[in-house]
């Protein structure tokens, strides 16, 4: 595995220097940023905590950062950590009772779904400040302003790459900090986990906090990169499901799974979008929807899950 990682790392240093179009670089940056968000989701998703509410954390991160900048001139470098704090606070307020009262499965999914709708609707309702469903644009300053976190595409590539790499590192650390047995125990059978001395509530809260914080960071970065925020695309059910699907189709039990999911979904969407152009609005998403259904029916462990399984079988 080691040489593979080094090769991948080196390969990822190249894109900004290659003779590729601005558009291609833009897609790569989007893939990295979203891969970071999807990775964040799997930090808790793989423990059986299937959240349909990550749109909430994404929205809180991005809107807190942008609103503080537009209305108080607070630099996103300070706004972003504040956004993370808000997201974590909300995650704890919801996550603590969920893990104490053993709200799992459908119920957990629906509670988080309600949460993400609460955030989306609050943004829409607070339209005087947030621009409501029309969305908002962070106040622009001359390009590549470090203080405003508004960079050129070249710089953004490195920011996105760093965020993504840190995301993978966190995933890896979480993976290591718990034994395989403990992890399976938490997701499969809480009573058994408690019996072998695992503090289920604490472990769940820990992964929830990490996941929410990372997602908020991802949201803030995506907002700053796109320079446009919209409650429908940055909060709410739609984006929450998008996160879940990308993570699952890539494979949530493998470190690169969510990244593969991001590559797949974004490249596919872009490809289909260009293929069909504006003649058939919705055609791309239609095919995407069918693929999602097929994925969940035939490949519930995702692309990476299937590959890892195959490799393991070959070795054995």
């Amino acid at each position: 595995m080691k040489p593979g990682w080094i090769l991948l790392g080196l390969a990822l240093l190249l894109p900004p220097f290659l003779p590729i179009s601005d558009y291609t670089l833009h897609i790569i940056i989007l893939v990295l940023l979203w891969a970071f968000v999807y990775t964040s989701w799997t930090v808790m998703g793989r423990f059986g905590l299937v959240s349909l509410g990550h749109g909430a954390f994404l929205g809180l991160g991005t809107y807190t950062t942008a609103l503080l900048w537009n209305h108080y001139g607070l630099s996103p470098w300070l706004g972003l950590p504040l956004g993370v704090i808000v997201a974590v606070a909300v995650a704890l307020v919801i996550g603590y009772p969920c893990s104490r009262l053993k709200v799992v499965g459908h119920y957990f999914a629906l509670v988080t779904l309600a949460l993400t709708e609460v955030v989306r609707l609050s943004i829409v309702a607070w339209r005087d400040v947030t621009g409501g469903s029309l969305g908002m644009t962070p106040n622009t300053v001359p390009p590549n302003s470090f203080e405003a976190m508004q960079f050129t595409r070249f710089t953004w590539y490195w920011v996105a790459l760093a965020a993504w790499a840190i995301g993978l590192y966190v995933w890896h650390r979480v993976d290591r900090s718990m034994t395989r047995a403990a992890m399976d125990a938490i997701s499969d059978d809480e009573t058994a986990a408690a019996a072998v001395g695992i503090d289920v509530t604490r472990q769940k809260l820990a992964v929830t906090t990490i996941s929410a914080a990372m997602t908020a960071v991802g949201g803030a970065l995506i907002g700053q990169y796109q320079m446009y925020l919209n409650p429908e695309t940055m909060a709410g059910v739609g984006v929450s499901l998008q996160i879940v699907f990308a993570a699952i189709s890539g494979g949530m039990y493998v470190i690169l799974g969510p990244t593969v999911g991001a590559v797949l979904t974004i490249v596919l969407q872009e490809f289909l979008r260009i293929l069909f152009g504006t003649r058939f609005i919705g055609a791309a998403a239609t095919i995407y929807g069918i693929m999602l259904i097929l994925f969940i029916i035939f490949m519930p462990t995702g692309i990476c899950g299937v590959i890892v399984d195959k490799l393991r079988k070959r070795r054995a």
């Binding site: 499901l241 919705g282 239609t286 929807g289 969940i296």
Partner: peptide
């Protein structure tokens, strides 16, 4: 949920 995406975009 995948069906939700599908129906929305098909419509």
């Amino acid at each position: 949920g995948g069906l939700l995406f599908f129906l929305q975009s098909f419509a």
